[in-house]
Amino acid sequence: MDSISLGPLLLSTPRVIALLSLLVLLAGGAWYKRRVDARFADWAFNAALTGLVCARLAYVAFNFEAFRSDPLSVLYLWQGGFHPMGAAVGAILYTLWHFRGQWRLLRHATVPLAVAGIAWGSLTMLNQLTATPGKPLPPVNLYDLSGQPQAIEQFRGQPVVLNLWATWCPPCQREMPLLEEMAKANPDVVFLLVNQGETRDQVQGFLDAGGLDIRWVLLDEQFTMGRHFDIAGYPATLFFNAEGEQVERYFGEVSRALLTRNLNRIR
């Protein structure tokens, strides 16, 4: 399972796993505050916060080229992009500083840190082991905005980025200009923006209002693609290689770094 549905919106399973691991750390800090020492009161929260900051910085460092062209996107935390090793290093370094010279308390602190790490690793491994293989592009026809049928199979032989979206979805609205920019900057990759369940007038009105000009916007009023890929919320972005095989999929608003990394994978 790679996502959890909350109505029409999706939470990626890795994000849920990370949140559960943070809750384990916070619960451990609260327990040690009551049973061991009051100095654990703010330790767990600050360790978690430091870990998140370091995880973000590590991700930015590993994807520096993507962030260099848009430095403000470093602050777009809702797009995701955190490196687990950075989180571990940040939390450990803060713990060493917080309990410096207090070796008894430091030994106690290693327990919730280790349990949180084990929880993250175990849940991540379980999620990977139970993941189902990605489905290939289906042999279906959808309609473009001019009313012409378009066979999805015509795109085999080219890398494809498939985005399932809706005009009422705020993350879909925010990521659309980036998808337009990346589509124009990567003409060797087909960007298919498949609207789910809305009419031509709704979609065209949205594109016109935003001044968006994207080559392959298709209408899927019957949710054919969503059912095929078992997707019930938006946005969802799937990446296919030239053979039509699904290489990766991501739930939530995409970032430039994520698109760049996966474009390199499908080429």
Rank of each mutant, 00 (worst) to 15 (best):
P235S: 03
Y59K: 04
W97N: 06
L26H: 05
L96G: 02
L219E: 08
V217M: 00
E253S: 00
Q158E: 11
R56G: 08
A131E: 14
S69R: 14
D70Q: 13
P170I: 02
L77T: 00
N195E: 06
A131R: 15
R174A: 09
Y76H: 01
L137W: 03
R34N: 13
A114M: 10
L259Q: 03
F45W: 15
E153H: 11
A55Y: 05
E221S: 13
L162F: 00
L162A: 04
Q173R: 15
L212Q: 06
Y143G: 05
L26C: 05
A87E: 03
P187W: 04
A151Q: 11
F62K: 12
D213R: 15
Q154G: 11
S73D: 12
L23F: 13
V217Y: 08
L11V: 09
W103S: 15
L49M: 12
V194H: 02
A151I: 00
N195L: 04
A242H: 13
L72A: 12
C54M: 14
G226I: 06
E198T: 05
L137F: 05
P14F: 07
H228P: 03
D144E: 01
A109D: 00
M225W: 05
D220G: 11
Y32E: 13
L259F: 06
L52Y: 13
R265G: 08
M85V: 15
W216V: 10
T237V: 07
